[in-house]
Amino acid sequence: MRRHRTAAGILLAVGALFTSGLVGAGTADAASPHTASGQSVPARTVSEAEQHTSRSYWTAERMRGAPSLDLLLTPQAVKQLRTPADSGPTTTVEPTAAPASFPQAGAAWTGDGAVVKTSGRVFFTFQGRTASCSGNAVTSRNASTVITAGHCVKYQGSWHTNWIFVPAYSNGSAPYGQWSATELLTTPQWEASEDINHDVAAAVVAPLDGRTLTSVVGAQGIQFNGGYNKPMYAFGFPAAAPYDGTKLIYCSGNSSRDFLFTRDHSLGCNMTGGSSGGPWFTGFSEAAGTGLQVSVNSFGYTFLPNRMFGPYFGNEAKALYDEAQAA
Rank of each mutant, 00 (worst) to 15 (best):
A8W: 12
A8S: 14
L12T: 15
V14S: 13
G15W: 03
G24E: 14
A25L: 09
A30W: 06
T35C: 00
T35V: 10
S37T: 06
Q39E: 12
A49L: 09
T53M: 09
Y57W: 14
A60C: 07
M63W: 07
M63F: 10
L72S: 14
L73C: 07
R82S: 15
P84A: 13
T92D: 03
T92C: 04
V93P: 03
T96A: 10
P99G: 02
A105H: 12
G106F: 02
A107C: 05
G111Q: 07
D112E: 13
V116C: 10
T118D: 05
T118E: 07
F123E: 03
Q127G: 11
G128V: 02
G128K: 05
R129F: 09
R129G: 11
A131G: 13
S134A: 11
G135W: 04
A137R: 07
V138I: 14
R141D: 15
S144N: 14
Y155G: 11
Q156P: 09
W159Q: 09
H160L: 14
N162T: 12
I164A: 12
L185F: 07
T187W: 02
A192E: 10
A192H: 08
S193R: 15
E194T: 07
H198G: 00
A203R: 03
A203D: 01
V204D: 08
V204F: 11
V205R: 03
D209G: 06
R211H: 11
G221W: 07
I222Q: 05
Y228N: 02
Y228D: 02
K230M: 10
F235W: 05
G236F: 14
F237A: 10
K247S: 15
S255N: 02
S256R: 03
L260Q: 13
L260N: 11
T262F: 03
N270W: 11
N270R: 12
G273T: 02
G277V: 03
A287L: 06
S298L: 01
T302H: 01
N306H: 03
G310D: 00
P311D: 00
F313I: 01
G314D: 06
N315P: 07
N315L: 01
E316V: 09
A317S: 01
L320S: 00
Y321V: 01
D322W: 01
